[in-house]
């Protein structure tokens, strides 16, 4: 199959960018979107042009680096996938595919399709520490945790910090990301001691970094490659109120 790519090119953080069009021929429908970009980059390199800069690491949907905004969708069309899990069979031959970097004030573009997501790290940092007993490892089940709670905490913990929630949110809000982290620890006894400071500080940092508020549109849970639910945002709201009116 053949596709026409319209890709955002931007030489550096402070230089203006623009779209450039690249036709790619003989694409296998079984290729991942990133493999197709690899093929394009090879041709660009061979013809002495600057290859397209994009991030990728694990290429198996767990590292969260390969975020691309493809035809108006974070990680492209499809549910529960990252860009590396997106196959070219999702597209029609001859289709024009528009590829953009994540757009958010808190995610500045560094080059082409690469954005700086360190604002996420600063949200995590502001969450602080978790008090645990040191010394020998505890026996299993010393701390009884209900199965349903453990499962829910695990669902939140599957967040890979890719930024799709921010990218797709009309307010560029990092609420799903922040809520997943808050929720994960709020559900477990280990996180309980610092729960109140954690939620206040993380929301504060989220806003200081320039992310927007949550409008409950639900776009984030649709685009989340790990399908993290809005239930966690509701829990963040409850945790926040508890911390405010303690």
């Amino acid at each position: 199959m053949n596709v026409i790519l319209k890709i955002w090119r931007q030489p550096s953080k402070d230089t203006p960018g623009g779209f450039e069009t690249y036709p790619v021929a003989d694409v296998s429908p079984d290729m991942s979107f990133l493999e197709m970009l690899d093929v394009l980059n090879e041709t660009l390199t061979q013809s002495g042009k600057e290859p397209i800069a994009f991030e990728s690491d694990c290429r198996e949907g767990i590292c969260g680096t390969c975020g691309l905004f493809i035809n108006g969708r974070a990680h492209g069309p499809g549910l529960g996938i990252t860009t590396c899990e997106l196959r070219m069979r999702r597209f029609k031959s001859g289709e024009t595919i528009v590829v953009e970097p994540w757009r958010a004030k808190a995610f500045p573009v560094l080059k082409d399709l690469i954005v700086d997501r360190s604002s996420f790290d600063r949200i995590i940092q502001s969450g602080g520490y978790v008090s645990v007993n040191t010394g020998n490892a505890l026996d299993g089940n010393t701390l009884p945790i209900a199965k349903t709670k453990a499962d829910e905490a695990f669902d939140a913990a599957t967040c890979i910090g890719c930024g799709a929630c921010v990218a797709t949110c009309k307010n560029a809000s990092a609420m799903l990301f922040t809520a997943a982290k808050v929720s994960q620890l709020a559900l477990l006894p280990q996180g309980e001691v610092e729960a109140q400071d954690r939620v206040i500080n993380m929301v504060k940092t989220m806003e200081l970094e320039g992310f927007g508020h949550c409008s409950n549109t639900g776009a984030c849970e649709i685009e989340c490659p790990k399908q993290i639910s809005l239930t966690h945002i509701a829990r963040l709201h409850r945790e926040y109120l508890k911390a405010t009116f303690k």
Partner: peptide, 8 residues
């Protein structure tokens, strides 16, 4: 929070 809009 989103100074540059998406094309699509």
């Amino acid at each position: 929070s989103r100074p540059v809009a998406y094309a699509v």
